[in-house]
Design a binder for these strands. Sequence first.
DNA 1: CATGAATGAGCCTTCATTCAT
DNA 2: TATGAATGAAGGCTCATTCAT
Lengths: 195, 195, 195, 195
Amino acid sequence: MYICTVRIKDETKRLAIVENTLDIVFEKGFAGIKMAGLAKDVGISPSTLYVYYKSKEELIISVFKELIKNKTVQSEKDIDKDLPYKLKLKTLWLYWINVSINQSKEMSYIHQIKQSPYYDLVPDDVKDIGYSVGFELFDLGKKEGLIKNVDNEILATIMSALLMQTVTLITNKKMTLNKKNSDLMFSFLWDAMKG
Amino acid sequence: MYICTVRIKDETKRLAIVENTLDIVFEKGFAGIKMAGLAKDVGISPSTLYVYYKSKEELIISVFKELIKNKTVQSEKDIDKDLPYKLKLKTLWLYWINVSINQSKEMSYIHQIKQSPYYDLVPDDVKDIGYSVGFELFDLGKKEGLIKNVDNEILATIMSALLMQTVTLITNKKMTLNKKNSDLMFSFLWDAMKG
Amino acid sequence: MYICTVRIKDETKRLAIVENTLDIVFEKGFAGIKMAGLAKDVGISPSTLYVYYKSKEELIISVFKELIKNKTVQSEKDIDKDLPYKLKLKTLWLYWINVSINQSKEMSYIHQIKQSPYYDLVPDDVKDIGYSVGFELFDLGKKEGLIKNVDNEILATIMSALLMQTVTLITNKKMTLNKKNSDLMFSFLWDAMKG
Amino acid sequence: MYICTVRIKDETKRLAIVENTLDIVFEKGFAGIKMAGLAKDVGISPSTLYVYYKSKEELIISVFKELIKNKTVQSEKDIDKDLPYKLKLKTLWLYWINVSINQSKEMSYIHQIKQSPYYDLVPDDVKDIGYSVGFELFDLGKKEGLIKNVDNEILATIMSALLMQTVTLITNKKMTLNKKNSDLMFSFLWDAMKG
DNA sequence: CATGAATGAGCCTTCATTCAT
DNA sequence: TATGAATGAAGGCTCATTCAT
């Protein structure tokens, strides 16, 4: 026996899937993604999910790709070329702090996938995107003798580490996000990096 | 009246279970723990696992408790009181680097459980152990005006962040563990912290 | 815009599940229900069972609810208002005898669940259905001074006890179901109850 | 590695096993018997259970045999030959009421095993014991024309049915056990049986 | 006789994915 | 494209029973 339903094709559906996936991963981690549950959250049938993504694996990786793509695009527009170097770095720092706080779900997703077996399945060209802005800034700082002459990878690591921990302190309510604390945390970064 | 002998639960076996659990989590994460697979690795029957731990959950948490217990015991013996302050801090730094590298599986387990839903099930008294040595050293440094006068929580966070990233660099073969690199990475920490 | 057809959960299948559950409980009791075995009997996959009932517990209770619902519906249509009182009671008696014999699996199920731990999980509003017809008849008999003036609960208990034992005698082939025996067994009931 | 314990052989152990089995079956039914749990309740090792009974099945049936044996022995001593017939029957009735109330666990066990698959495994000579006293009394009553001239099996069934339901009413607190109620319930029996 | 550890067989349940429309 | 039903493969766990002493 069969009944009929009418459905209008909806291109925002994919966006809804991404959004709900982020919510789930943020709250319960990757193990919390259940295809049927996700479909229900989105308001579609499990099989419809497979119209958009051919497997759970593909879903997880596609969502990651989408995040990376958006993140990179955004970060390119935000640097002001006329500031003194220290302020340039601070601008980048503040930008990342804000991104991390305001887009905590997205950041959490990226952070979690990097430690999961799924990350092995991410194509290399997607993996290596994201630090270009930082790298240029590091090169500049080193050329001008303002920061330690160390491999960019290491500098990026230092910056990322301090960034993440700052965000953690804020997220865990052990610190509030205000100018004083931003300055304090940035002072750690600057003192660590300056040559 | 009777005299009888009784077999005693095998401590070796429990250790083997812990060891294999660490291996699995290190390689595949918590989702990779399959009771049957673990049992096979250890060389026992799946049901025997349940003689030692009454559920997967309990296994995961018990292993964590054991790691914490051992870690704390070890870290208490390693501080030398007569060194100048910077060297004291460096000793702690090197100690942690070594622990992190040599016991990378254990550290990975601790790191992973802290971000998993299982951590909610860990008793609070087990959660709060681990930074006592660092905190004393921070207090000393602040009293002598050698490091920034900032909350211990923050200092510990900074140290921990740099530590973890250093270990990551080494583990990912982007850096080798030698004196030069140790000194370099410590210089980031020291410059960041010093007052 | 799309038109699509959707398969509907198969009522036949649900009935087949109920039927087979009754068979199993009748033959082997509640402990005899094995989800995989039941699925095989019905001709579906074990997991399909979980499309219809979300757990073994729910299956058992749902089947009970269904039996109670049907039983109540049926028993409401069978009373003839113009008979003399004794014959009214006998009609009810015979109706119940027939139900009990012809629907022995259903009765057995009801009887068994009431003595099992599952009964604690049955909602109260389902528990209390079933004696309404009898109670009205008892009230009538007491008003007319034809039967003992005793609590309905007790009268129902007496009737139910004799009924069940009669059925047991028949089921165990120690008695055949014929007019003479029906009359005999009803005479026990009537003599016991009459005022 | 082994340790030693000293144990004194204890013939009351078997009794303790029986007692605990009764408790379990009374509270949770036959499905509630778990060999390990029972052993723990008794204070012995699971394997020791197998010294006394070679399987769960044997345990269940042996306990039943023991109950039947004791019950029969007791019921033989309680009949007073000089009472008028109705009082003799009432004595038997009251005796059984008391047994049923005071030894509710034992009665429950007998009742439950009779409806379980285990009953098929009980030897026939054990099954048929228990009504001898009643049967003699029924024969007497029939000979004197005081009760209906009906097969003993049926009379016993009637009596047993009313008995069990009376006990149920009392156990479920819908009736209290006092002289008035005893008399009332016996009146049902007597009216039903008398010729 | 007594024991605690050990186990295999089996159970309930979940879930990513496919089927049939 | 869209769907709800259906499912196979697997996983966690239980428990009567045996092992080894």
